[in-house]
Amino acid sequence: MAAPARRLCHIAFHVPPGLPLARDLQHFFGFQPLAVREAAGWRQLALRSRDTVFLVNEGGGPGEPLYGLDPHHPVPGATNLCFDVADAGAAARELAALGCSVPVPPVNVRDAQGTATYAVVSSPAGNLSLTLVERTGFCGPFLPGFRPVSSAPGPGWVSHVDHLTLACKPSSSPKLMRWFHDCLGFHHLPLSPGEDPELGLEVAAGSGRGGLRLTALQVPTNNLVPTLVLAESLLGVTEGQDQVEQFLARNGGPGLQHVGLYTPNIMEATEGVAGAGGQLLTPPEAYYQQPGKEKQILAAGHKPSLLARQGVLLDGDRGKFLLQVFTKSLFAEDTFFLELIQRQGATGFGQGNIRALWQSVQEQAARGQEA
């Protein structure tokens, strides 16, 4: 591996001037301003919720924003993942030797709180770039070049990034998996016993109606780097586009589809987000009426009526459960969204939920056509 990732530093967004993403992250999801930089036509605001940091790059000056790359993409979205590495300069040289594009070669940034070195690498996943930063010589709250921002403590609904999901073109997962393995040290993480890493986990919708292929990747023995999930559509007949196909069409290609944010109390988090005006997806009523679903929810120690009211999904068995809820897209283009996730011993990604939701939506659509 050329540049083993040691920690996720932040996730960067690129948005046009005036788009209220930074405001929405604060008002609806409890993020608080951490540091800001305004220069050369850019306003860069870092926001934090515990160990989760989002960097909103707003504008589009003649140069590049610090610690990133302007993708000149017509659709706003999450376009950069920043990872801490041991030696950013050496990592950039090794990646270039592997044939990777390094549009921003190593840059040294210094201020009164210390120094950092970073380089930006293009990824094969659409408009997603990777920033490799070395900041052992920095003692500030974020990164050199940014002015710290004082703010009141937030509600802390979100503790850290659980996973990152990339929407990929069909049959592209093996290539992407090899790239992230060779360049950043990610390894295949089986989601089911005996899973073939070339095939991933197939979550079929049933009756030839398509489905999703999920391939999970993880940096071994390093829980400071979130799991990376590659999602692609399975061939089949569907009622319109599935969620991955929709993202590819509306985003203009592959990219970061959603970020899974871990919450220690999903009921408190969803109540807080909804109470603040955040928009959460409401599962079809049929999801909670599946045979055995009420018993499953009770076994996990929750009330079925409360989960249904909050739109929280639950998957798992044998004492290990996963709870999750999805937001509506953060952008008008209906692309990138957030997921709130709480784990009660489960390590997967709600494969049963994906299948059940797919089937219940299809059945609901069929009933609507019959009416």
Rank of each mutant, 00 (worst) to 15 (best):
A5F: 10
A5K: 08
A5P: 12
R7P: 04
I11D: 05
H14E: 12
G18A: 09
Q26S: 15
F29L: 13
P33R: 06
A35R: 11
R43K: 13
R43D: 08
L47G: 03
E64I: 13
P65K: 06
L66W: 14
G68H: 05
D70I: 03
P71M: 05
H72S: 13
H72T: 03
P76Q: 06
C82I: 09
D84I: 12
D84Q: 07
G89W: 06
A90T: 10
A91D: 12
L95E: 08
A96S: 10
A96V: 07
P103M: 08
P106N: 02
V109D: 09
D111R: 10
T115K: 14
A116Y: 08
Y118T: 00
A125D: 10
G126K: 07
N127C: 15
L128G: 07
L132Q: 01
V133A: 06
V149S: 02
S150W: 08
P153L: 03
P153S: 02
P153D: 04
W157Y: 03
V161Q: 02
A167N: 07
A167E: 02
C168M: 14
L176I: 12
W179A: 04
F180K: 10
H181D: 13
C183E: 12
L184K: 07
L184G: 11
F186T: 07
L189Y: 06
E202L: 15
V203N: 06
A205W: 03
G211C: 06
V219F: 04
V219W: 02
V219T: 02
P220N: 04
P226F: 00
T227P: 04
L230P: 01
S233K: 03
L235K: 13
T238K: 13
E239K: 07
E239Q: 14
G255R: 08
L256I: 02
T263E: 01
T270Q: 12
E271A: 13
G272C: 01
Q279W: 13
L280H: 01
P283W: 11
P283C: 09
E294C: 13
Q296D: 01
L307Q: 05
L314R: 04
K320H: 10
V325C: 05
V325A: 09
S329T: 12
F331N: 01
A332Q: 07
L338I: 07
L340H: 00
L340M: 05
R343E: 01
R343S: 02
Q344C: 06
F349H: 00
G352P: 01
N353G: 09
I354W: 00
R355M: 04
R355V: 09
A356D: 14
V361S: 06
G368R: 09
A371V: 15
